[in-house]
Nucleic acid binder design. Structure first.
Lengths: 335, 335
DNA sequence: TCCTGGCACTCGGGCTCGATGAGTGCTAAT
DNA sequence: ATTAGCACTCATCGAGCCCGAGTGCCAGGA
């Protein structure tokens, strides 16, 4: 049954190419790998693999390199491999003394970029709906005010609103007192109803509606549409196999967020433990030379953490690191 | 007096090299620029400029390119040039509808990176000392709590503290009430004194000192040691003149912050309107092929905004953009 | 004193050319 | 189904070569 050996050959080609970044030939394979067959046999297998579109040669009579499809086949047959103990410990110590949510995310993304030597990406964790703990409204100049909402789970949201017209100090203070009394401890539909009522009261300050909107938005659950990344230099580092002109669009995509968020959403929908998008599978021109490995974390597995690098990357290692960081993040965030 | 013409020649060489990214020769200069002298004369001037270390040739019998020192001389003799009206308008509309401080910084850095087509860098604005408006302490699991401080100028700081030992709900609530009563409206030394007294009271919860520290830190003025950047892709874009291997260390330096912060501090100390560091003047290996143009903004001009790019950059344009953004930021932040 | 035209010289870029060798596909034998 | 052998392909590398942009220098002119 040559089927199995062909898989082994593909496996060897992927590993060889990832390691050396050079096309790998039949002879080298026969010598270095212990496949127990001659180079000629390997050549025959290669011909079939090439017909199947799993490998390609950059030019006639060079070695073979895996295609996106080849990487895909390789990844699909990968058994979950474990992370080294040293790495495992590193994760624990690195994340344990974070002071707040931002800090957790920040540390995670740094850590993951170091573990994988790729660009690490962390989407902000999804938040559950929370109730109002305290609302502050702070005057900023004559026309603006800043609404600060502290929710029961210690999230803090702030947003500036326009006052529209002059408001007396008296009315201002009354509004703050009232809105706190109205909203305290409430959440969801009941909060919304209470605030609407309050905002529509006769004689109400004209910006009450704006305040209500901010408060409702601040306590609403769901995923914050924001990703942070770190380790961009890994893209440019020698041996990444990416050219400067290839890197620029990738950096743009990272900064733009939109593209990345859409991609992460798609990947989250697949529901696997760790999902991998390879090259063109990202469905995005800028990322067509890169792969992304992502895993969900947090409540309902609604947020993603991932690593992005050249298609020619160490998939087993990266997948293990991403999986491990996702697990730890889940633990920390679900508190 | 050939002194003046030599300056003009240097000027022309810088502009030519920035525009084309190719060494510029005497003949091309004589033809394209209206210097009113022949190429031979220019060659003589060039010889002197080279002796002075202002220009160099990549190899015998190529055109000349400016050295760091040459750029420096060029920049020092630059008159402040104005930003185009279109750009000026762009700044206004772009920054006017920011919702909070983070948003202002975020928008600024994006804007500046677009205007200059370089990597833009914005240091968080320095904050003036403020008084306490409200303190919230939120339980997070059994052993931790999150302290949230809202200051009178609507800053919000949060930090988690360890509770050390079990605390009853009663004691918890009392502590929150007390600390609010103690700290409300206070700032600086008086705040510190009041909190110390409170924390040292007999029968006090053991984590009172930790809370006090957080509150004091949250209202203290000074510059937040943090920079954000945008437009990293501009480094890699075609024509930046930077190689992939040169880019990696720069990206590292940007992410590390420390290096960048030290550099910005140094530049702030010079006190000029707009300061420029060229190549090796950054005193940092990773940045030895890049220049940075920075301007102070905000109260006491304590924070910096800047643009970082290859030494071969459009200094006049970049300086104008940085200056303009710094002015606008000052307006917005000083409210 | 300063500028200019002329001229010999230098040297990197780009070209061809051939040698090299890794790697292939095919075929016949096992 | 596997293997050994062989002819073939083609990128890479270095040598040799020319070309031309650009220089430095010098002698003559304003």
């Amino acid at each position: 049954m040559s089927e199995e050996r062909r898989r082994a050959v593909l496996h060897a080609i992927v590993e060889g190419y990832v390691a050396t970044h050079e096309p790998v030939g039949s002879k080298a394979l026969a010598e270095q790998r212990e496949l127990g067959v001659s180079s000629a046999t390997i050549r025959n297998d290669m011909a079939i693999l090439e017909e199947e579109g799993l490998i390609a040669q950059p030019y006639t009579s060079a070695g073979r390199i895996p295609t996106d499809k080849g990487y895909r086949s390789f990844v699909d047959q990968l058994a979950a491999s474990a992370l080294s103990d040293a790495h495992r410990r590193a994760i624990g110590t690195f994340l344990s003394d974070a002071v707040d949510l931002n800090d957790v995310v920040e540390r995670s993304v740094r850590l993951l970029s170091q573990l994988t030597r790729q660009v690490a990406v962390v989407q902000y964790p999804s938040l559950r709906e929370s109730s109002v703990r305290r609302i502050e409204i702070v005057r900023m100049g004559a026309e603006h005010a800043l609404v600060v909402v502290v929710s029961a789970d210690a999230r803090v949201e702030q947003q500036s609103i326009a006052l529209g017209e002059a408001t007396s100090d008296d009315a201002f203070e009354r509004a703050v007192r009232e809105v706190n009394a109205t909203a305290h401890g409430l959440s969801g539909a009941r909060l919304e109803a209470a605030l609407t009522l309050w905002a529509q009261a006769p004689d109400q300050v004209p910006w009450a509606g704006a305040v209500a909107d901010v408060v409702v938005a601040a306590t609403r659950g769901g995923t914050v549409e924001r990703v942070v990344f770190a380790g961009a230099s890994n893209l440019a580092r020698a041996g990444s196999g990416l050219e400067a002109t290839t890197i620029a669009p990738v950096l743009d995509a990272l900064e733009e967020q939109v593209v990345l968020l859409r991609l992460l959403h798609e990947m989250a929908a697949e529901g696997d433990d760790v999902t991998v998008r390879i090259g063109a599978e990202t469905h995005h021109e800028a990322l067509s030379r890169t792969s992304i490995v992502a895993a969900a974390y947090g409540r309902d597995a609604a947020s993603l953490v991932g690593a992005l690098g050249p298609t020619r990357m160490d998939y087993p290692g990266t997948m293990a690191a991403v999986r491990a960081v996702a697990r730890y993040l889940s633990k920390v965030v679900e508190l």
